[in-house]
Amino acid sequence: MDVAFETDRVSVVFGGRRALDAVSLRIGADEAVAVVGRSGAGKTTLLRLASASVLPTEGGVEVFGEPLAEISMRQLQTLRRRLATVPQDGALVGELRVLENLLAAHPHRQRWWHLLRDSLWPPPSEVLRAHGLLESLGVGDTLYLPTGSLSGGEAQRVAVARALFRRPGLLLADEPVASVDPTRAEEVLALMLDSQRRRGGATVVSLHQPEFASAFFDRVVGLRDGRVVFDTSPTELGAEDWAALYRGSQAGGEAS
């Protein structure tokens, strides 16, 4: 099995606090994995390791078989173009139109002549693809709107569209449905996973909702205080596993 993302006893320390503690994970090139846990359990840190946005204090990270610690900046940039992230804050530029946000994320339109063309008259095929993606997420009409004028839920769906537009080998989504209403959230997750499965890409999604984790994913990884509590298929998860994850939390909840 090809491996998309692998961590080997990775620890990350931020100012004396251990965000991740000896986490070893291996995610296959066509797997869909949910990462669950309370706020501060280390979900976001784990996802940010893959793009080398966070560097491990101990241990090693490999993406598509490349050890991140050993490769040059140039190789890293090439590698990063095969990833897509949906960060919590969306990473959308509010001053750009939605279409421009998508074009900006295109991994192979990076040269100055691409930039010039995309600023003036973007290629119709790309516009069509962008519109199709947005439409399937229910936000097709926002194509030419300023991104800053969208509502929270719309912006989050645009962020998902932006990630899928890259056709990533590894999609890392950090709570991509946090501010979308529940029925819409199911649609968004289903579309995301479906499109990744069809193209044969891996997906790692951090989530709040246990029911979504069980319904859509091949594997569920539970994190608590930076350690892996469980790592198994959702069918084998029982109520006591979830209880172990959230024990001692206030009112069972996270506030995001």
Partner: peptide
């Protein structure tokens, strides 16, 4: 392209 043109 026509719906896109309309949006544009």
């Amino acid at each position: 392209m026509s719906p896109i043109r309309r949006l544009h």
